[in-house]
């Protein structure tokens, strides 16, 4: 079963990611019973999915989070895919969802989600991190939790630090 890091804990996860076949029509792709993360195109083409409560949209790097802006108040999960860990578009998508569009539900990073990016993921607003299945042993995943805390007091404002360092603390000239 897939593992999920949420609230600094390792949980078993029951959501599955739906990957339609190439060329499939987003409007007719079947979304079976159970908890499914589906491509934004499927989510948009099948408005009935929103009412199910157990289906969530997946944003790719090229997707525009503005497309979800009207629905964010009712969504409990949005996923963002990182096809390669070096593709950083998802950090800006997360920032926009949290800071510009005010999304407060679960924001999950999936795909090539590695521990050395955990700190940056969470600061941009991801509260759920899902590394690839079998990427880490249980022991490695436990050790990886330490990476969430790589930097205690970062300079920047972000989703988890509403204010930059200079507004969080009284800094005195040394």
């Amino acid at each position: 079963m897939a593992k999920l890091i949420k609230n600094q804990q390792i949980l078993d996860d029951t959501w599955q990611v739906l990957t339609p076949e190439d060329g499939a029509d987003a409007a007719t792709v079947a979304v079976p019973a159970g908890q499914w993360i589906v491509p934004l195109a499927v989510w948009q083409a099948q408005p009935a999915l929103a009412a199910r409560g157990d289906v969530a949209p997946l944003l790719e790097g090229a997707d525009d989070p503005a497309d979800l802006a009207d629905q964010l108040g009712t969504l409990s999960l949005v996923a963002v895919n990182f096809p390669r860990f070096a593709d950083g578009r998802g950090y800006s998508i997360a920032t926009l969802l949290r800071s510009r569009y005010g999304y407060t539900g679960e924001l999950r990073a999936i795909g090539d989600v590695l521990r050395d990016q955990f700190n940056y993921f969470t600061r941009c607003g991801f509260d759920a991190l899902q590394p690839p299945v079998d990427k880490y042993t249980d022991a490695q995943l436990g050790a990886a939790l330490a990476s969430l805390k790589d930097f205690t007091d970062p300079y920047q404002a972000s989703a988890t630090f509403r204010d930059p360092l200079f507004r969080r603390h009284a800094r005195h000239a040394a």
């Binding site: 070096a86 593709d87 950083g88 950090y91 800006s92 940056y120 970062p154 920047q156």
Partner: peptide, 13 residues
Amino acid sequence: RQWSTFHPEFAYL
């Protein structure tokens, strides 16, 4: 320098 150091959004440009 401070703003750009470990900026979480812009480490994988």
